[in-house]
Amino acid sequence: MIQITDLTKRYGDVVAVDHLSFAVRENEIFGLLGPNGAGKTTTIRIIMDILQPDGGEVQVLGQPSGQAKARVGYLPEERGLYRNLKVLDTLVYLAELKGMARSVARSRAAALLERIDLQDWAGRKVKELSQGMQQRLQFVASIVHDPDLIFLDEPFQGLDPLNVERIKRLIADLHREGKTIVLSSHQMNLVEVLCDRILLINRGQAVLYGYLAEIKEQYAPNVVRVRTREVPADLPGIAAVEPDDGAFNLVLGAGVHHQDVLRALLDRGVEIRAFEVAPVPLDKIFVRVVGGEEA
């Protein structure tokens, strides 16, 4: 779907994107992550053909960057709408710019407004909408032309929990419809829920890239979480035991596998109600990787 090879972009002496390579596959939700100023937006703008790279190659939907604009949707981080334009007219105009016929654009825009409960506002000016309504409208403005590939740069920014859920549902629906989505967000909990694979970039370079599950496993801490009445004191290979909300976190010694701990517990006849490798949230991986780099 997207093939980026050795992409480089400089602003004067600052290297915003530094020999970056990655690929986005068809019908996946791909997370593009990184701290502020890492080069995410620059990378997206280059893929959208808004900026020109200094080096490297960009292929979008099998074509050079810029030749597939009609099939790509974009919700930028810095976004807004024509405040004095009517809601339906706004969507129709943006769809026409993407090459959609006016009559088709009108019916599709009307259908999308219904989908986000704004059908009664179609004839009103954008400035009359509440902030939440405007954010929903902005989201559908990026998909009004029925694109195959959609870039969502901070789609949850400034949304209340209700609207976060609405947008989450919309993203999931688009995924089910076969769309490919590139999601850039600082809300790691949402990225964890939505994304299949991720790319974490820092200072313009890739620092983590691959399936989210594999990355989480790779960064899993050497801790198991056991829900039981008590943990035997003579359990081998355990460096520390920390009570945690009715359960125990067992910090494993060096070279000790969690399977060995489970076996030792069963051998001692401990009644286990739950046993899991302690999960590592994505934000902790983020902080560890980026923080480690910064340090």
Partner: peptide, 16 residues
């Protein structure tokens, strides 16, 4: 200036 101030410009230049 209005397109720039309202930030709609980035959506437009992603299309044209």
């Amino acid at each position: 200036a209005e397109e720039k101030e309202s930030r709609v410009i980035e959506i437009v230049v992603s299309s044209v």
